[in-house]
Design a protein around this nucleic acid. Structure first.
Length: 214
DNA sequence: TGCCAGGCCCTCTTTAGGGCCTT
């Protein structure tokens, strides 16, 4: 008889990859989220997705309309941020989280969750910091460039939350694959990968060699 | 009207400056 896995074991195998579209760069200066997209990766496969527009209670700039393709008219009928973030809180649970340039998405997640009095316990990983170390020969480390550089699956849509979250998930799997190949390891923990993103670039080869010895 | 942030990381560094990323 198989035992049901404990919640801790499930969390270790599951990552939620997320991406926000926002009114600007800084929640500290009043910017709000306008779309959240996310996919749930379980043991390297996308098993669930989440995508919702949200009404920030203000008009968005022409720049953001052009950049994202999200118009003011699209947001008029969207649910308010608070309502969407409650549903997103249920989606992410206590799973570990990942984003491309996670410091950006983290500050918007924290700001929007603070508005609804919600907190979360998952750790944040960053595909930008990791790819700067693992894919050091890439022309640059913008998400779109890395998708092209690694020939990752894409529908040609950029700067929309779900599409960017999906591409970030594929980038993460490519990073995992590359590290596994270089270390000849079968499995890598989220903690090992998070640690890697803090190792100085010049020391990455040494770090990978140390990983391979365990 | 016009402008706006911040974390990370490299180097011509650490008593600093500037490029890269995210919207």
């Amino acid at each position: 008889m198989l035992l049901e896995p404990t919640p801790v074991e499930i969390a270790a195998d599951t990552i939620v990859v997320l991406d926000f579209e926002t009114t600007g760069l800084s929640p500290d200066r009043g910017d709000r989220a306008i779309e959240i997209g996310a996919v749930k990766l379980v043991k390297g496969e996308i098993v669930e997705s989440f995508q919702e527009l949200m009404n920030p209670g203000m008009r968005i700039s022409r720049f953001i309309e052009d950049y994202t393709g999200i118009s003011n008219s699209m947001l008029t009928d969207a649910a308010p941020c608070e309502e969407v973030m409650h549903r997103f809180a249920d989606f992410i649970g206590d799973f570990n989280l990942l984003a491309h340039n996670a410091s950006f998405d983290r500050k918007f997640l924290d700001a929007e969750f603070a508005r609804i009095g919600h907190s979360y316990s998952g750790s944040f990983g960053c595909s930008l910091l990791t790819s700067r170390r693992v894919f050091q020969d890439a022309p640059n480390h913008k998400l779109g460039t890395l998708v092209e550089y690694k020939q990752l699956p894409t529908e040609g849509v950029f700067h929309r939350a779900l599409a960017d979250a999906q591409m970030t998930a594929y980038l993460w799997l490519e990073l995992l694959s590359d590290i596994k190949r270089r270390t000849e390891l079968d499995t890598l923990s989220f903690e090992q990968l998070s640690k890697l993103s803090t190792v100085p670039k010049r020391q990455i080869e040494d770090y990978l060699q140390r990983l391979a010895q365990f």
